[in-house]
Amino acid sequence: MVDAVAQPPRNPGSIKRFIERYPFLPALVIMLVLLALNGLWQPRSVGLVGLTGLAKTYLALMLLAVAQTYVIYAGDIDLSVGAIVSLVNVVIVAFMSAMGGDTITVLAAMVIGLGVGLACGIVNGVVVAVFRLQAIVATFATSIFFTGLALWVMPVAGTPAPATFWRAYGGRILEVPFVFWAVVVLAIMLYLIARTRLAIQLLAVGDDVQGAYQSGLPVTAIRMRGYALCGLFAALAAFCITGDTASGDPLVGGKMTLFSVAAVVLGGSALAGGHGTVVGSVFGALIIGLINSLVYFVGTPSEWQNLVQGLAILIALVAGILIGRRARS
């Protein structure tokens, strides 16, 4: 990939082919432009401290966007990812505060958190793939159920996470901030998952479900696995939220659901399924983060910030889709 980008395009069709091959390229360009603009307005924001802060705040959204991508690969959607984040957040915080905050407890809490995320993903998979309910409304219903569970575990926000947990998340290993290690591990994980049979099967189901079925793919099981993978990554996102906010909140993830969908679209994946990359979704999450910080850095009055952010995200969504389509046509 690195060679491909370094070489100048030999004919006008080359750029098109690159974008077709790497649908995340428009997102990468938009992200780099936003990064440059951020640096122009606030040079410190692209320094080590600024970038660490960005990664710390938006790592959760990056992971959630990845989670959403695996479901969207197969042409499905998961509107419960935010509720899963909330549920895992309160479960691990409640567990750690009950058991004390030593390292063993933290590790046990993470295992439990992954289990909860996986269970939620399987529930979604069952209602959508096995019971064949429509994904949008069915996962909205499960999101209400998961939110109820989260409220049952922790009725009000505010239980603090043990210091071991958030110190590790905000700390450094070998002088390098922890979140950067996390990004590296994430990159390796995404690379490995992209090479598995499951990733290709999900895309095949999303591209043509009838064709996939007729060529002998176990469509129901594949869609279930997509939701299960989504639940696992939502749990990872919950760990990051917990590290960033250092407390439990039964509604913390609710607002993230629609942003995760927006990040996937910004990353060049097709909502209809069958076409996309997880890397693009990571870029999409960063684009949302960079838009938010840029709006702040250029000195937008605080009451106008949400509107300018909303407009910028809408424009980025539309532009990304138009560029991607032009490349494929």
Partner: peptide
């Protein structure tokens, strides 16, 4: 409780 209400609501919708 609100929690039970939400769980029942979600399950009934499904």
């Amino acid at each position: 409780d609100e929690s039970g209400r939400q769980m029942i609501f979600g399950a009934t919708l499904l």
